[in-house]
Nucleic acid binder design. Structure first.
Lengths: 361, 361
DNA sequence: CGCCTAATTGTAAACGTTTACTCTGCAGGC
DNA sequence: GCCTGCAGAGTAAACGTTTACAATTAGGCG
């Protein structure tokens, strides 16, 4: 009786699974009347197999609905065709634009993409190293430079051969020996600041990201450099953190507007913050650019439709994404440590719209 | 001589790889002086092993820098701890908000996330089925309902037991037997339209997504229903596609503004398009809400900082994400086909800001 | 007709885990 | 002192591929 019951159970289970069948290469081989090696060859090296055999096998594959077990393949080949992208926040339209480029290139090469956010996460360089070691992914794209990479399980020497490519930010000294694709952020920030200066602004404040993030560090450096060159003073409290978010930027903007020496122009380290800045200025009853000019950075797709449209620095996000991915592919394919470790600089451009004007006072 | 050379080569290779060592469980076992089974147990079932042995093994692990080969584990266990999220576009802030919720829940459970965009992709239901069959991922979250799922390798019966959960959109009939988490879009769109009507609008147009997308279909249905109930006529050309993008919506808006019977209010099927709509109206020299009122849908984070701030329908994106992920986890853990197949409805809410006012004319 | 070569297919090992099963000792009860 | 039971550790099989190598076949040429 018990036996019967079990049988019934088993049958039911099998019936349940009928549509997602568990056929391995073995059953295909059996049905086609060939060895498993031949089946494998039919799939991976069809040219090494007779037309006749190939058809037999093809028929068996269709018949059984066979599809190779990716897990077994990955295991055997030691490749997952997965690459990991580490970025601060997937919500930032700039990064999604870069992602678009990455994805385009990835699709060409047959890679899928695993996204890891550092924001709100305690992900450390160790985690990344661990992920690499565990071979879950074939390579890593770092869109968020991680400060303490140097102090890690990975020595400088080995880092140079790792399948890692850095994008979007001039690499800090820690990552200097990794290949990268990015604009010259320092120069771009200088250009932005100089444009404000050229318009006649002297009281120029900046909203950067946050201390711990390298993302906006270079932009801050460019701002400082430009101000210094123009012999303009950066007052205490003119350099304030905006957390890379709209709300953070609004808070920061409020502080700037309340400053005893209110700036006539605010340079935001990215457009996301510039949007918050813009809004907060209007909430305060002031106008842009009448009372305060606002300059952004990134040229995300919303910049153009702001009111007023945002003057900003344009980055070729799509191109960065594609190039980063292509370099990573090359690195993976050619084995680690093909000498290609230099930093590629792509051009940025100043996009002049209407959020910056000459100061009224 | 040749032997020497080879030796040297080998040594060099090993030196190259020194930091990303190739230690398997076997070498750990050897060093610790135990069997590989014991090492495995130390890692996965520490309670089944003597304190003494565990320490020995622990020491060997640290010494060698061993880390289990994830590929082998996945292969052996038949699980990847990867889930796939299929969505129309990762650039849409609404989806990134949902993603945030998904990610939060995923992290808790130890899952990583693979993102697949349907936009600009020819990904079909077949591809999804294939991905499932190939076991690359343990489960799938569909934020983009796919129309022709029914005609597929997967029968209705088997679909009911697949590790798939649908989010964000009331499921079409094809997917009716899959578990889902979403707002009642039809009802929400009705509410939005009714609000416009209540403000006194009679000439109300709508910008929906695109024919092929189910994403905005329900919203269109709600709009139609509300208009019908209020006995308002939808003129030819008042229902126009916006491609779910800013530029598409701008184009659509231009058409609406050029219409012989210009609408006094435009209901956009999502905020992204509402932003484009808003901008195009202003470009045309008209004001919002003075000349035309604009209503959005989703309440993305930019809605609030538009000028004027956007009146829209709020969806609990974060909650949707978390709930979808939790249900998927349960489905994966409990084996397929735990009876939990119903559609969960989460509440939406009308967010009144300033882009809608009474019609002037 | 037999041998050599090339083309095709088969055999079996290997990848690194996990785990069912077996074995070894040791403690405790009789 | 012997048997039982059990905890801890080992042995080996299995997962589904790929691939080096061996075996077979066929065909061409002397």
């Amino acid at each position: 009786m018990t036996g019967r019951l079990n049988d019934t159970d088993r049958q039911e289970e099998e019936a349940e699974a009928e549509d997602i069948p568990d056929v391995s290469i073995t059953v295909v081989a059996k049905i086609a009347g060939v060895s498993i090696a031949t089946v494998s060859r039919c799939i991976n090296n069809p040219e090494k197999v007779t037309e006749r055999t190939r058809l037999k096998v093809q028929k068996a594959i269709v018949e059984t609905g066979y599809s190779p077990n990716t897990l077994a393949q990955s295991f055997r080949r030691g490749r997952t065709n997965l690459i990991m992208v580490v970025l601060p926040s997937i919500g930032d339209p700039f990064f999604t634009a870069v992602m678009h480029g990455i994805r385009t290139a990835a699709r060409e090469k047959g890679y899928s993409i695993l996204i890891e956010e550092t924001q709100h996460t305690t992900m450390t360089a160790d985690d990344i190293g661990a992920l690499l070691v565990s071979r879950q992914t074939d390579g890593i794209i770092l869109l968020a430079s991680m400060s303490p990479f140097g102090t890690d399980i990975l020595s400088a020497k080995s880092r140079r051969r790792l399948p890692i490519v850095v994008g979007c930010e001039k690499v800090s000294s820690d990552l200097a020996d990794l290949p990268s694709v990015c604009i010259d952020s320092v120069d771009a920030a200088k250009e932005a600041t100089n444009y404000l200066i050229a318009q006649g602004h002297e009281r120029i404040a900046m909203i950067y990201g946050q201390e711990s993030s390298l993302l906006t560090k270079d932009r801050e450096l460019g701002y400082r450099a430009a101000m210094k060159t123009a012999e303009l003073k950066i007052r205490d409290g003119w350099l304030v953190a905006g957390q890379l978010s709209i709300s953070g930027a609004r808070q920061a903007t409020r502080e700037l507007l309340d400053h005893t020496e209110r700036p006539t122009a605010i340079f935001c380290a990215n457009d996301e913050m510039a949007i918050g800045c813009l809004h907060e200025i209007k909430v305060a009853g002031l106008t842009v650019p009448g009372d305060v000019s606002v300059m952004g950075f990134d040229d995300i797709r919303y910049a153009e439709v702001m009111d007023p449209p945002l003057t900003t620095i344009g980055q070729p996000a799509d191109e960065i994404g594609e190039r980063v991915m292509h370099r990573l592919c090359k690195r993976i394919e050619e084995g680690r440590g093909n000498g290609d470790n230099q930093a590629q600089i792509v051009p940025h451009k100043l996009v002049i719209r209407q959020s910056v004007a000459k100061p009224s006072s």
